[in-house]
C-alpha cells in the first residue's frame, strides 16, 4: 500500500525526505523484504501458522525491547531485564506447586519491583551509570536465584495452565499472547506520547539540566522509570515461561542483547531523547524473522551468528542514514 505511494514520487531527495518524516516506513519495507526472501528460499513457509508462531516469539522480545526503549529515551539502558524475567518465571514455576497462583504471582513480581527500585535509586539518586548499575543488579539477581534454586529443588516445578494458554495458545488462529501485548503496547505508546511522565522521559534524555530548571526532580523520574521497566520484564518472564515451558536459570538471558538491538533498529537513540515504541515493535519483528531466516539457511551456528551480527549492524547504520538525512 504505502510502497506504491513511494514509487509514484520521483526517487532521490523527496524519497529520503518522505522516509525521514515517517521513520516507520523503511522499517516496514525491510520487514516485508525479509518475509519475501524467506518465502523465496522456502516456498510455502509463510502461512498462517508461521505468522502466529513468529508473533508468539516476537512478543516477549518486544516487551523487553519496550523496557530498553523507555530507559534509552533517558539516555540509560536496562541490562537487568533478562535476570528479572528469569527470576519471576522461575519463582512462579516453583511456587505455584505449593501456593495459590495469586500468591505465587505476587512472590514472582517481588524481585522485579525490588531490582527496579534499586536500579532507579542507584541511577537516579547516586548517579551510577545505568550500564553498570543494571549489570550489577543483574549479577546479584542471578546469584540470588541460584541460592533460591537449592531451597526448591525438592518440590519441582510446573507451568500454570493459564500461562501456557497465554504463551502458546491460539484462538481462531490468533495467538492469545496478543491479549496481553496489544493493551500493553497501547499503554506504552500512550504513556510516551500523551502523558506528563512520557514527556519527561524524552526531555530528561535530551537535556537533563533544562528539565531541572523547569522543576523536574530527576530521581523521581528515573526511579519510576526503572521500576516500570523491571515490572514489565517480570511480566515478560511469566509470558515467556508459558511459551518455553522449561524453567531454567538462564531462561530469558538470551533475549537481553536482542532487546537492545530491537530498540536501536526501531530508531531509538541510545543517547536519549529520540525514538518511540512503534518502531521498536517492528524492530522486534524484524529480529525474529531474521532469526528464522538464518535458521533455515542450514549453516553452522557460528556462521549464523556472524551473519546475524553483520545484518544488525548494517540495518541499523542504513536506517540511521535514511532517517537522519536532512
Amino acid at each position: 500500500m504505502s510502497t506504491t505511494a513511494i514509487q509514484s514520487v520521483p526517487l532521490g531527495r523527496r524519497l529520503k525526505r518522505f522516509m525521514a518524516d515517517r521513520p516507520l516506513i523503511p522499517l516496514i519495507i525491510l520487514l516485508v523484504i525479509l518475509v519475501v526472501i524467506l518465502q523465496i528460499l522456502r516456498p510455502g513457509i509463510v502461512n498462517e501458522r508461521w505468522i502466529a508462531n513468529t508473533i508468539k516469539f516476537a512478543i516477549p522480545l518486544a516487551i523487553l525491547a519496550g523496557c530498553q526503549t523507555m530507559t534509552m529515551l533517558t539516555g540509560g539502558i536496562d541490562l537487568s531485564v533478562g535476570t528479572v524475567a528469569t527470576m519471576s518465571a522461575f519463582i512462579m514455576a516453583t511456587q505455584v506447586v505449593n501456593q495459590d497462583p495469586a500468591v505465587a504471582f505476587l512472590l514472582a513480581m517481588m524481585p522485579a519491583v525490588l531490582i527496579g527500585l534499586v536500579n532507579g535509586i542507584g541511577v537516579g539518586v547516586f548517579r551510577v551509570h545505568p550500564l553498570i548499575m543494571t549489570l550489577g543488579t543483574s549479577l546479584i539477581g542471578t546469584g540470588c536465584l541460584q541460592v533460591y534454586q537449592r531451597t526448591v529443588i525438592a518440590s519441582g516445578a510446573k507451568i500454570p495452565d493459564f500461562l501456557a494458554w497465554l504463551g502458546t495458545g491460539l484462538t481462531y488462529g490468533v495467538p492469545n499472547a496478543l491479549l496481553l501485548f496489544v493493551p500493553l503496547a497501547a499503554l506504552i505508546v500512550f504513556t510516551l506520547s500523551r502523558t506528563g511522565f512520557g514527556r519527561l522521559l524524552y526531555a530528561v534524555g535530551d537535556n537533563e539540566h533544562a528539565t531541572r530548571l523547569s522543576g523536574v526532580r530527576y530521581w523521581q523520574v528515573i526511579s519510576a522509570l526503572y521500576v516500570i521497566s523491571s515490572v514489565l520484564a517480570g511480566i515478560t518472564g511469566l509470558l515467556y515461561i508459558g511459551l518455553i515451558k522449561a524453567p531454567s536459570l538462564s531462561l530469558a538471558e538470551p533475549l537481553v542483547l536482542p532487546s537492545v538491538a530491537a530498540a536501536v533498529i526501531g530508531g531509538t537513540s541510545i543517547f536519549g531523547g529520540r525514538g518511540g515504541y512503534t518502531g521498536t515493535i517492528i524492530g522486534a519483528l524484524i529480529l525474529t524473522v531474521l532469526t528464522t531466516l538464518l535458521t533455515i539457511l542450514q549453516m553452522p551456528e557460528g556462521a549464523r551468528r556472524i551473519l546475524f551480527g553483520l545484518i544488525v549492524l548494517f540495518v541499523t547504520a542504513a536506517y540511521l542514514r535514511i532517517v537522519e538525512e536532512r
Partner: peptide, 9 residues
C-alpha cells in the same frame, strides 16, 4: 509535567 501529580494523561 514537572510535578509528580502531573505525570498522568
Amino acid at each position: 509535567s514537572a510535578a509528580l501529580r502531573n505525570w498522568g494523561p
